[in-house]
Amino acid sequence: MIPLQRVEISAQAQILLTRWTQRVEGAGATGQTARELWTDAKAPKKHVRAALESMARGAVRCMYCDDSRGTDIDHFEPLERAPLRAFVWVNHLLACSFCNSNEKNRKYPVDAEGACLLVDPTAEDPADHLTLRLSVGTYDPLSPKGKETIQVFGLNRPELIKGRVDAFVRARSILRDWHGLHKNAAPEAEVVAQALLDSPFVDVVHAMTRLKPGVAVIVVGEATVRALDTWRAVHSHSLRVGQQRVHEDTTDASCDKGAIDSTLADDDLACQGRAAGRSNDGPVRTMRNYGLIWTDPTGTPRSSAVAYDQPSAQHRKADLEREGRTNVELVPVRPGELPEPRS
């Protein structure tokens, strides 16, 4: 599991999601009504899926296991627990069917204060809560949230462990090959780099880049350390904030507020044409990014490892304050930048 940057959905899509939230509320706001309405919501799901796919790694990888294709839209906080979040953008993640149905399903563990005990990779850095043991391919918890995340998502199921061990072998070899190409300024170097970034189990590469120098030489070997040092300098950003594909506001002209508000039955007809991020002929959105800085309960200054759009940043700020963090602030950042903790 690696950090991913949540994109901002279009204004039209947000209006549509709000409209469907109102339907859930009007139908009694139960888990059953929320699920029934979500099943019928073709247009909102088109927008949500397109935006999630623009955030996902490689060939649209699952945001939890980083292995299989993300086929399902997962409600991070389940509908049975929070029916009014059925159509809330920040409550959606992309999962493979195994992680979503066989593993997480409707689980949502919380602590004694009601705070969620699952890592949301679009709202926090998973490395704050769990660490990957590269040599054996298993995740170890660093916090109660990490422990529950490993268990609920089945991150240590045998096929994932085997996949990570194999990926570790491949990554070391590919990094050494890439390093040679990069030193010779070969055009193929970037093709090899992108293939590695798009491969399954990129969390292995992410964990390698976070190894401390004295540990790295033991874990990956001296030859790979030299390649890894260069890789950090060239590609650390792409692994630190997650992949950012171009996300465009290409909603049909007919999908405006008037069309959305016309009738309940017209929602799907008005908006099932082009969802955000599916076409190249619309204007490119310029997203305002925000990082967060705060002080943890031990008095240590901290900063976010991912950037957010403004609604997601506000949501994350509220979560941090509920968790007992103080002096939580939103900091505007340029694309590719992250804030520094307070000195």
Rank of each mutant, 00 (worst) to 15 (best):
R23C: 09
V24S: 09
V24H: 11
V24T: 07
E25I: 15
E25G: 11
A27P: 01
G31Q: 05
Q32W: 00
T33G: 00
A34N: 03
R35H: 12
R35K: 15
E36P: 06
E36G: 14
L37C: 01
T39Q: 13
T39M: 08
T39C: 06
T39P: 05
D40M: 15
K45L: 02
K45P: 00
K46L: 10
K46G: 00
H47M: 15
H47P: 11
L52G: 01
L52D: 04
L52T: 03
S54N: 09
M55L: 10
A56V: 01
R57E: 11
R57Y: 13
A59R: 10
A59H: 11
C62R: 12
Y64G: 11
Y64T: 07
Y64K: 08
D66S: 04
D67H: 10
D67G: 02
D67F: 08
D67V: 04
T71M: 07
D72N: 12
D72T: 13
H75N: 04
H75Q: 01
F76P: 07
F76A: 03
E77A: 04
P78E: 03
P78C: 07
L79E: 08
E80D: 04
E80A: 09
E80W: 00
A82R: 06
P83S: 02
P83L: 05
L84Y: 13
L84C: 11
R85D: 13
R85H: 10
R85G: 00
R85M: 08
A86W: 05
A86Y: 03
A86S: 08
V88D: 05
V88H: 08
V90H: 11
H92D: 05
L93S: 04
C96T: 08
C96V: 09
C96S: 14
S97P: 03
S101P: 11
S101Q: 15
R106L: 14
R106G: 07
Y108C: 07
D111F: 08
L118G: 10
L118I: 12
L118D: 13
V119Q: 08
V119N: 08
P121D: 13
P121M: 12
E124P: 03
A127K: 11
D128A: 06
D128R: 05
H129Y: 10
H129C: 09
L130D: 08
L130T: 01
T131Y: 12
L132D: 14
R133Q: 15
L134M: 07
S135D: 15
S135I: 12
S135H: 14
V136G: 13
G137R: 02
T138C: 12
D140C: 07
P141G: 12
P141L: 03
L142Q: 13
L142T: 05
L142W: 05
S143Q: 09
P144I: 14
